[in-house]
């Protein structure tokens, strides 16, 4: 599907998960999203986001009930309600919200190339400069990671054999400072050089830019929009079917 259609859908689902809707309906939305991930990306891609949010989900499920003590009490210890009907409902709502929003963005990000996503955002009015910042930053991330690894290696080699004990806890931050200094200086030094590269390719000109690569126009966009509209409309209409 065209990223220009997926993007509003992801936003729509995010909003839906924040609305005070019946739990069954939220569950149905989550089911639909899961199905989309399963069919579109495979079962393993369904497990991946779940694994990253698992600790948070656990926190939500354990810690929400004690703060919502209304309704029928299920578990009380010494006059303190730990588990009640309201608590269970609230925990389920928050868990559905967290999982649902994560899935909505996950399906968008996993099925769209970053460059296409930026093109889609530009179609919705993101300025050229902002898109350029994001895409250049994305390009720099792997290189910087390599740089940091190498600086750490260099540091390790130089410290070797001097009997310095390995750092622990907050000492780690302290022992990282010289390495962070190197990485920051190397990065800051690249700023004017990157600026040179950008100006040599015409960043700063006032004329209208053109674009060689465009997201597909015409029939595919229309079909994509129709599909997105159907899904979105279905999700919204469902609200009125569940009174």
């Amino acid at each position: 599907m065209d990223p220009r259609c997926k993007l509003p859908l992801a936003v729509l689902f995010t909003v839906l998960f924040f609305l005070p809707l019946p739990l069954v309906l939220l569950g149905a939305y989550l089911g639909a999203l899961s199905l989309a991930i399963w069919l579109g990306l495979g079962f393993r891609e369904l497990v991946r986001p779940l694994r990253t949010i698992a600790p948070l989900l656990l926190l939500v499920l354990l810690l929400t009930p004690p703060f919502q003590r209304g309704g029928q009490a299920y578990l009380r210890i010494g006059g303190l309600t730990l588990l009640s009907a309201d608590g269970v409902r609230e925990a389920a709502r928050l868990a559905l919200r967290l999982t649902g929003v994560t899935f909505a963005f996950f399906v968008l990000l996993r099925s769209t190339a970053p460059a296409d996503l930026i093109l889609a955002l530009r179609a919705f009015g993101l300025p050229f400069g902002a898109g350029l910042v994001v895409s250049v930053a994305l390009q720099y991330v792997p290189g910087l990671k390599g740089l940091f690894d190498q600086v750490q290696d260099a540091h390790r080699l130089r410290r070797a054999g001097n009997g310095a004990p390995p750092a622990r806890g907050l000492q780690v931050v302290r022992s990282l400072l010289p390495q962070l200094t190197s990485v920051l200086i190397l990065s800051i030094r690249r700023i004017p050089i990157l600026a040179m590269a950008l100006e040599m390719r015409g960043v700063g000109r006032t004329n209208r830019r053109s674009s060689m690569r465009r997201l597909p126009q015409g029939r595919r966009l229309v079909l994509s929009s129709l599909a997105a509209a159907a899904v979105g409309l279905g999700a919204v209409v469902a609200i009125f079917l569940f009174p």
């Binding site: 350029l132 910042v133 994001v134 930053a137 700023i191 004017p192 040179m196 950008l198």
Partner: peptide, 13 residues
């Protein structure tokens, strides 16, 4: 260009 470069590099860091 310089502003874009500064923000892009610092964002990556």
């Amino acid at each position: 260009a310089l502003r874009i470069a500064a923000v892009a590099v610092l964002t990556a860091v």
